[in-house]
Structures are given as structure tokens and as C-alpha cells.
Amino acid sequence: MSIWLASNPWLTVLYGVIVLAIIAAVAYYTPWSIALFTFREGLRKKTLIGFLILSILVIFGSMFMTAMMYDTGGTVATDVDVKLIKDICITAISIFGVLIAIFISASVVPTEIENKVIYTVLSKPVRRFQYLLGKFVGVQIIVAVNLLLMGVLFSIALYIKEPIFPRMLLYAIFLTYFEFLIVSAFTFAVAAASTSAVLPTIAGLFIYITGNLTQYLESVVNRSEVSENSVDKGLGWLAWVLRNTLPDLQYFSLKTQILSLQINDTPKDIQIPNLVVYGILYALAGYIIAFWVFRRKEL
């Protein structure tokens, strides 16, 4: 049974259809003017620009950092500096990117509530579902554009060191986006429930950190398996449920793996699309929760 779930090709097809349907539905129902408006507004946020500048500093700073390194030579060609630039940059992109994603997701709706723009919008013939979708899609455009921007800077930094087109980088950035999508969707759900951006921002950081630590639950499950205590068993069961329902952002660490891809490394063809589907499904769950709390929210 479990293997059937894990590797059945028809299930894969079904998943593909579901995901395509989700994307099509989003594209169809999104009020693009709201999304675009959110995007334009988001670009003017000072925190966002601040993070962007910081990431640029780090990305180009990494070049100076490695420039100090002594070329130790040895008997074969090594490129520690390229590896370091890659690692520093992908980390910077991950951290600043996720911060941008969290701040934007946490603030777009509460800000509009605070300055009452939402009143003028929701009094128009726009359903709350559409409004929220527009905002969410707008956030995603911001996150994606930021990611793309940082990715381009990263490529430039990398290209200066090693003039090869960094194809793997594209995949890494692409994957990173879906990691952010999950964090962003759940942060957005918290934001839809609150009136200020502070709480959802903290919640977003919490989501990101716990999302990366989901694997720890596995050891709880394993320990409870050997225990006789019924409380331990119960805890183990709870941990099992949480481990299997909470998103595990560590799965996306594939991005660092493919970035420093070794010669003749494992074929990565199926992991990437599967992770994309994973990201979209959790984002969908996050968005439905967001709509659920926003549907009857008193503004």
C-alpha cells in the first residue's frame, strides 16, 4: 500500500492534474488588478528594499571574502572560492528571501485594514475570496521577482568567478521559491486573522524555523517505539501525526545539493517536480485556511 502511494505512476499523473487545476483556477479567479496593485505597493516597502540591499551586499561581499583566501594549489584544480560564493549566496537568498516573503505576506492585508483601503476595495463588487486571492497572488509576484532579482545578482557574482552559465542555479532558485510559497501561505493565513503585521511576522518566522525542524519529530517517533509507557506512546503518535502533516522545509535543502552538484551525481529529475507539487499543495492548504478565517472577519 505504502509503496503504491509512494511510486505509483498513475498517482503521479493524478497529482499533476490536481496541480494544473489549482494553477488554472488561481489564474482564472485572480483579480489581476488587485494582484498588480499589491505588487506595485509591495515594491515600495522599505523593509523589502532594505533586505534586498542587504542581500546584494552579502552576495557581492562573498566575493571579497573568498578573494582573501589563499590559493592553496595542491595537485589538482580546486575551486573552494566558487563553492563558498555559492553557499554564501544561496544562504543569503534563502534568509533574506524568506524574510521578504514573511514580511510581505504578513503585512499586505493588515496594512490595508489599518489604513482602511480595504473598505473601499471590499465595497466594490469584489468577493472576499477574490480579494484575498488577488493579494496572495500579488505577494507571490513580489516574492518571485525578488528571488529572480537576487538570483540574477548571484549569477553575476558567480559568472565573474567562473564564466560558465550557472544552469543549476536556476533550478535552485526555482526550488527555493516553492519553499517560500509554503512559508508565505501559512504566514498569510495568520495575517488574514490579525489586524496588525507584528503577530503574523513573528508567526511566519516561527513557521519557517519549525518547518525546518520537523525532522526532529521523527526521533520522537522512533524513541516512542521502543518505549513501553503509554504516555510516550501517545506522544509518539502525536509526533507521527504532526510529522506527517506539517510541511518539512528540509526537503528543499535539495537546492544546496544541486547547486554544488558533483560530477555524475544522483539524477535529480523526479525530486524537483515532486517538491513543486508538495509546495503547491501546502500553499493551497495555507490559502484555504486564510480564506476560512477571512471569510467572516469583521473589518
Binding site: S2, L5, A6, S7, Y15, I18, N244, T245, P247, D248, Y251, I270, Q271, N274, L275, V277, Y278, L281, Y282, L284, A285, I288, I289, F291, W292, R295
Partner: peptide, 24 residues
């Protein structure tokens, strides 16, 4: 309806997570 939808999305996500873990 919304609760069912959330549960469904989470279940699908969890299933996909299981698939990804298997792949990993």
C-alpha cells in the same frame, strides 16, 4: 466545506510529503 477542503489539501500535501520522503 472549508474544513473538509483544508483537511483534503493537508492530506494531499502529507501524501506528497510521504512521496518526497520516499524519494529522498
Amino acid at each position: 466545506v472549508l474544513a473538509v477542503l483544508v483537511a483534503l489539501a493537508l492530506a494531499l500535501g502529507a501524501l506528497q510529503g510521504y512521496r518526497v520522503r520516499n524519494l529522498r
